[in-house]
Simulated scan of single mutants.
Amino acid sequence: MKACRPYRFPPLSQKAGALVRQGDAAQVQASLAEGFQQGMDTGYREGFESGLGNGRAEGFVQGRADGLVQGVTEARQEMQARFDVLTRPLDTALTEVRALQADYQAALRKEVVDLVAKVARQVIRCELALQPVQLLALVDETLASMPPAPNGVEVYLNPEECQRIRELAPERAQQWSLIPDARLEPGECRVKAGGQEADAGCRQRLDAFMEQVTSQLLGVPDTSE
Rank of each mutant, 00 (worst) to 15 (best):
I124E: 07
Q122W: 14
V155D: 00
A117V: 14
A169H: 01
V153K: 00
A169C: 03
Q134M: 15
P147T: 13
A117N: 14
Q163T: 13
L143Q: 03
L128Q: 05
E141M: 10
V133S: 04
Q122H: 15
E171L: 15
Q122V: 13
P150R: 04
V155T: 00
P150V: 03
P170F: 05
E161Q: 08
I165E: 01
Q122I: 13
A129I: 10
E161R: 06
Q122S: 12
R166V: 08
K118N: 13
K118D: 14
I124V: 11
I165G: 00
A144P: 03
S145K: 11
K118F: 13
V123K: 08
P147M: 12
T142K: 02
M146P: 04
P148C: 02
I124A: 09
A169T: 02
R121T: 14
L136H: 00
N158C: 08
V123G: 05
R121G: 09
P132F: 01
C126N: 15
N151H: 11
Q122T: 15
L130N: 08
P159N: 06
G152D: 00
V123I: 10
Q134K: 11
Q122R: 15
V155N: 00
Q131T: 09
V155S: 00
P148Q: 04
N158D: 10
L136F: 02
A144W: 07
E160H: 10
V116H: 11
A129N: 09
E154T: 08
Y156I: 14
R125M: 08
L130A: 09
E127Q: 07
L157Q: 06
R164H: 13
V116G: 09
N151A: 09
T142M: 02
P170T: 06
P170D: 05
L138G: 06
T142A: 03
E160N: 08
C126K: 15
D140Q: 07
P132T: 02
V139N: 00
A129Y: 09
D140H: 06
R164Q: 12
A137G: 08
D140A: 05
C162D: 02
R125G: 04
R164K: 13
N151E: 12
L143G: 02
V155E: 00
N151T: 11
P170L: 05
N151P: 06
Q131C: 04
P148N: 04
